[in-house]
């Protein structure tokens, strides 16, 4: 028996919008720790890891570990039917091949339930090692989204370069080139507008902008984004979900042939 009640149901709506374009089908895992997902995109270039901790739910009952295969497209369709202020409850019975999403309006005058078919998904779970990153950039998520969108109109790839001067995003395309430098800016009165750069080593890596623009769909989940870079590792683009967990995207770099 599974029953998860989330008063701020809009979080789940935003999570689905943040991952559905990257991954079509995925297994959601439910355990005492929380509701989680790990999945690669179909090209195996990017990986998304989601965690919604059990403490973040108003009610969290998960009698045994469950892995439920879902079409994220279909799940997003169902969650779009929930109002932004609705309380969302996820329910599943042991051995059932369906999951139910229940939406309650804040005043309890409208209650809807949507039952969705589960699916069998053969997916590999990867072990992601703890790593020390050479550079960690924290910046406003809206700023990062804007940069990726703007650069995507000019080129296909972004070179992210962190030095003690700041973080530079560069692209090159048929029409020309673009460079955007963000310097450290520790706005004490407005922490959500801060750009903070922690650098052990200068690092320069190249990534496909298509994926970065897909990650930026998580912008409504967090005011800040954390970009962790090391020359020998995929970049991690993390959006923290307040008091609940995170959506992390891992993206393998492009290298010179």
């Amino acid at each position: 028996m599974l029953e998860l009640r989330l008063v701020q149901g809009s979080i789940l709506k935003k999570v689905l919008e943040a991952i559905k374009d990257l991954v079509n089908d995925a297994n959601f895992d439910c355990s005492a720790t929380g509701f989680s997902l790990q999945a690669m995109d179909s090209s195996h270039v990017a990986l998304v890891a989601l965690l919604l901790r059990s403490e973040g739910f108003e009610h969290y009952r998960c009698d045994r570990n469950l892995s439920m295969g879902m079409s994220l497209t279909n799940m997003a369709k169902m969650l779009k039917c929930a109002g932004n202020d609705d309380i969302v409850t996820i329910k599943a019975d042991d051995g059932s091949d369906t999951i139910t999403f229940m939406f309650e309006s804040p005043t309890q005058d409208k209650i809807a339930d949507f039952e969705m078919k589960l699916m069998d998904i053969d997916s590999e779970h990867l072990g992601i090692p703890e790593a020390e990153y050479e550079a960690i950039v924290r910046m406003p998520s809206s700023e990062f989204a804007r940069i990726c969108k703007d650069l995507g109109t000019i080129g296909d790839t972004v070179v992210i370069s962190v030095t003690k001067e700041g973080v530079k995003f560069s692209t090159r395309g048929d029409i020309g080139t673009a460079n955007i430098v963000c310097r450290q800016n520790t706005s004490i009165d407005k922490p959500e507008e801060a750009t903070i750069i922690e650098m052990q080593e200068p690092v320069t890596l190249t990534f496909a902008l298509r994926y970065m623009n897909s990650f930026a769909k998580a912008t409504p989940l967090a005011t800040q984004v954390t970009i962790s870079l090391s020359s020998e590792l995929p970049v991690v683009v993390e959006y923290k979900i307040a008091e609940m967990g995170y959506v992390r995207y891992y993206l393998a770099p492009k290298i010179e042939e």
């Binding site: 270039v45 779970h125 990867l126 072990g127 590792l233 393998a252 492009k254 290298i255 010179e256």
Partner: peptide, 14 residues
Amino acid sequence: PCLQRKILEYFDGD
């Protein structure tokens, strides 16, 4: 020309 690396080159299956 750039070569796109894959996630599986960095992370192993559990």
